[in-house]
């Protein structure tokens, strides 16, 4: 009897998640993200020209030879957009992963141990929160000097507190759950308890937040590059390219294509994050179950 039931439930739960990930928006997001990831991986193979070579006539409009035209120093814009994926996407992913790791570990410690540790960590987080993200990132990046590495460090500093805050509140809710207490009664020390019982149950909302954040990270990274605080010329960075386009306003293609690249990537990650949230959020799951009953 139990066997049959167990199999049924298993099948049903898998079905539920895949169904929520099968919405049109989620599919669009998934396809676009997959497309850009492939572009990033195979950039050296698929770009028609060297993105740094200034071999062509300046400011050519899009044509059969140069689909996206050429820029103010005669570089092929298509090649630069493709290479830009290689710069922005891995950096954004890495950034989000590190921010998530640092933020959630600090948040979990603050939430679980409370008291002075909690106060210290969360007051530092509040300090970061007190400034507008982009301004603070600019200040840090400017004081470190313009380079992609420094831009990433600056963004790491401004983005971990969001994860810390979310993780802390989730841990606060989970640490008094009966299964955590039962574990403590069976002799789990604080770190065992945290890693075995608490964190696995709070990880999915944090992952959803991270997915939603990839888009923001790309935007912020491009923003810093646009302001000249990120990628140093001649690195093919989307934000820096948009900045070039602004200085050559009559040649719309210089800014439009990298802009479009930013737009699609950011949108796609947001779609994916939304769908993932709907699929993993225990509350929306309950709502679905409630309706089913």
């Amino acid at each position: 009897m139990t066997d049959v039931l167990a199999v049924q439930t298993k099948r049903r739960s898998r079905l539920r998640i895949s169904k929520q990930l099968r919405t049109p928006l989620a599919l669009t997001g998934g396809v676009i993200v997959a497309f850009w990831l492939l572009v990033a991986v195979f950039a050296p193979l698929i770009r028609p020209f060297d993105p740094l070579a200034q071999d062509f006539d300046r400011l050519q409009a899009p044509s059969a030879a140069h689909w996206f035209g050429t820029d103010q120093v005669g570089r092929d814009v298509l090649s630069r957009v493709i290479s830009g994926a290689q710069v922005s996407i891995p950096l954004a992913l890495m950034l989000v992963i590190f921010a998530m790791l640092i933020g959630s570990v600090l948040g979990a410690i603050a939430g679980y141990f409370g008291k002075a540790l909690d106060e210290t960590i969360m007051r530092i987080a509040d300090l970061v929160f007190a400034f507008p993200t982009i301004i603070l990132a600019m200040v840090i990046a400017a004081s470190l000097g313009p380079s992609l590495t420094n831009a990433v460090i600056a963004m790491l500093i401004v983005s971990w507190p969001a994860y810390a805050r979310v993780t802390r509140s989730l841990v606060l809710g989970a640490r008094n759950a009966e299964y955590v207490v039962a574990g403590r009664l069976l002799g789990n020390g604080p770190f065992t308890s945290l890693s075995k019982d608490v964190l696995p149950n709070v990880v999915s909302p944090v992952v959803v937040l991270a997915t939603l954040d990839v888009g923001t990270a790309i935007l912020l990274l491009s923003g810093l590059s646009f302001l000249g605080l990120g990628a140093v010329p001649p690195t093919p960075d989307w934000g820096a390219m948009v900045s070039d386009g602004v200085q050559n306003f009559s040649s719309w293609w210089i800014a439009a294509f990298p802009g479009l690249a930013i737009l699609t990537v950011v949108l796609a990650f947001n779609f994916l994050g939304d769908a993932l949230r709907d699929a993993l959020d225990p509350r929306s799951q309950e709502a679905v179950q409630g309706r089913a009953l």
Binding site: M1, L5, Q8, T9, Q289, A292, L293
Partner: peptide
């Protein structure tokens, strides 16, 4: 109890 465990709509299984 077995009879009730067999009710497929019981809370934990939906």
């Amino acid at each position: 109890a077995n009879a009730s465990d067999a009710v497929p709509t019981e809370g934990g299984l939906s």
